[in-house]
Nucleic acid binder design. Sequence first.
DNA 1: CAAAGCTTTCAATAAAAAATGAAATTACTC
DNA 2: GAGTAATTTCATTTTTTATTGAAAGCTTTG
Lengths: 169, 169
Amino acid sequence: MTRLEKSPERSSEALTSLEVESIEMFIGFFKLIGLPKSVGEIYGLLFVSPTALAMDGIIERLGISLGAASQGLKVLRTVGAVKSVYMPGDRRDHYVADLELSKFATAFIQEELKPRLGRALERIETMESLARTLPLDERSSAEERLERLKHWLERGESMLPWLLRFLVR
Amino acid sequence: MTRLEKSPERSSEALTSLEVESIEMFIGFFKLIGLPKSVGEIYGLLFVSPTALAMDGIIERLGISLGAASQGLKVLRTVGAVKSVYMPGDRRDHYVADLELSKFATAFIQEELKPRLGRALERIETMESLARTLPLDERSSAEERLERLKHWLERGESMLPWLLRFLVR
DNA sequence: CAAAGCTTTCAATAAAAAATGAAATTACTC
DNA sequence: GAGTAATTTCATTTTTTATTGAAAGCTTTG
């Protein structure tokens, strides 16, 4: 059975302007949530790709390294932004962009925002006990501030479920 | 009229545990929205400070450089996270933390999120015209994806005013 | 208006983050 | 199960970002 000549498509051709636009846009979005350029590049390319792409195709097209591609795809997979698709007769993994864009935001909220708010609220408990050991004049101002911060964090925390619901539809 | 001996308070004493907790917490929050450590340090210190602090006090207490302090305070001022307070008989500026914590989030939304969404939506227009020049088979998949992304971005944009209203009370 | 105090600026340096690619690992094929 | 293809890992290098501190620029004071 004759096997593939690897990625015969337009692997090493220059990026089209459509691809460039997409890539630039997603680089920006991903940077916003703290992900490196290479991750945005990969997603941007996949987003406008009409076919699933194998890792070596991505590498050639974007001119990034093996390591960056592998790690970038791992991130995208764990965030659910990309999924791999079975291609009969080809042993490479092939990737497509998952179009549920809300997943990025959701992952960011669940994995960054929510835990950070939780930890901050714990920290405030600690700070409140520390404040109780202060001389009275300093104590009251510290306590007021902590109270205020706590309030605000709780407010933020209470908003997250709503936000998540909004995002998933 | 006898003038100040500069910052007679506890300027160069080690940080208290309360201060350390506060600083660590704010470093984390500020990093989340892409601001450097020094900015978080300054805000964290000011947040639990019962008195307004001058720049040289901040420098001594935190052990950061003049430049970092000046630039950090500038950022905090422009974001509205800190305000300077007049201290009679002292020509240095004195800073206090603004307790309207929502300002950070608001500034982030107004200055990062909103413009980025706007630019992305423009970009999509461009991409839509580019897509129209594609061969038919590629064209329809690209158009579907763009349509979907556009929808999602518009949704996000429509949520921002609500979010802002929620944050400001 | 000169001198001193305070703040900002910015070129140089240091620290952190990301990318590279060779080597190790895993998975598939015959 | 040996051989090869695909993928991951990770020590090193590159790039990016933040910090430093000397010098310049304001402002106040006497």
